[in-house]
């Protein structure tokens, strides 16, 4: 079973053993059949600590194959520590091709962003999720949140959003903005900015979510209704910037604010590095 390459690593393909992969795969199939519902799974110890993407890594390990092309992003960037290390990990334990181009990737593991470049049918996006339970900050007990989901009792979340309006005049939740999947399950989109929420709705790509520490996974199949919670008089809206990206000039992407010196000078640049580069090359 072990694909040993002499002088190199002695791990099974994609690090996990085949029994673990089968367990994850069976859980993934149920997750796809019940969009937005959190399926428990036996989370394994991985060669990096909880909170660094162990859920996403285990999902990726259970689905990745020799012919996949893998892209890994962290806050939109291909070149940050978490992204570089996870990409290198999979390159080492699977030998698959990696890329930073969204269009070339068949499998995209992401922490906290969805690429700006529109996803296409057949692509799979794996999200790293710290807290899969959207209701957890409102109800600490797993037994209780299970019941709330069973009875589709999501009044708590509406109260929380209403309290935002009462205190701030608008819904102040700007990331990890709760969504209703397939008009049935309330789900956390993982801490993506709410800017990315509309990309979840009727996405042509399969979206998988893995939480390693919390031992839960869930899925949003392609072409599934995903609605961000809102009120009739306070409709859902996404972040907007007055500035364009300082590097590529894009007005349509999610911007990071970067402090450039001690005097407080700042610039706004795309958080999606691949998109920014494409835009710069397109302009040049």
């Amino acid at each position: 079973m072990t694909e040993a390459r002499p002088g190199q690593w002695q791990y099974n393909f994609a690090f996990l053993d085949e029994n673990t992969k089968r367990m994850l795969r069976r859980a993934l199939l149920k997750a796809v059949a019940i969009p937005g519902y959190q399926v428990p799974f036996g989370s394994r110890e991985m060669p990096l600590p909880y909170g660094w993407g162990t859920g996403g890594i285990q999902l990726t390990a259970s689905i990745i194959g020799q012919h996949d092309v893998l892209k890994v992003i962290d806050q939109g960037a291909d070149d940050t520590t978490n992204a570089v290390n996870i990409r290198r990990f999979f390159a080492r334990v699977t030998g698959v091709a990696t890329t930073s181009h969204t269009t070339e990737a068949s499998l995209i593991q992401t922490r906290h962003r969805i690429p700006e470049t529109p996803l296409r049918p057949g692509q799979i996006v794996v999200f790293q999720v710290p807290e899969p339970e959207a209701l957890r900050t409102l109800e600490a007990s797993e037994v209780e949140t299970r019941k709330l989901h069973a009875h589709q009792e999501y009044g708590l979340m509406h109260v929380k959003l209403y309290e935002d309006i009462a205190r701030f005049g608008h819904i102040a939740t700007s990331y990890d903005y709760p969504v209703m999947v397939n008009q049935r399950y309330l789900a956390s989109p993982s801490p993506i900015p709410k800017f990315d929420n509309p990309k979840l709705d009727m996405s042509p790509a399969l979206l998988l979510f893995g939480a390693g520490r919390e031992k839960r996974l869930y899925a949003i199949p392609p072409y599934t209704r995903v609605e961000s919670l809102a009120f009739d008089d306070h409709p859902f809206s996404v972040q907007r910037w007055e500035q364009a990206c300082a590097l590529c000039g894009s007005h349509d992407s999610y911007l990071d604010e970067i402090i450039t010196d001690d005097a407080g000078a700042r610039m706004f640049v795309c958080s999606d590095t691949d998109y920014c580069q494409q835009q710069q090359e397109g302009v040049a």
Binding site: F13, Q66, P222
Partner: peptide, 19 residues
């Protein structure tokens, strides 16, 4: 090849249920 063939087969099953 148990590892690669079952992976390929799983992706077909996953796609079948996703679509």
């Amino acid at each position: 090849n148990m590892v690669h063939d079952s992976q390929r087969m799983f992706r077909h099953i996953l796609t079948a249920l996703a679509e």
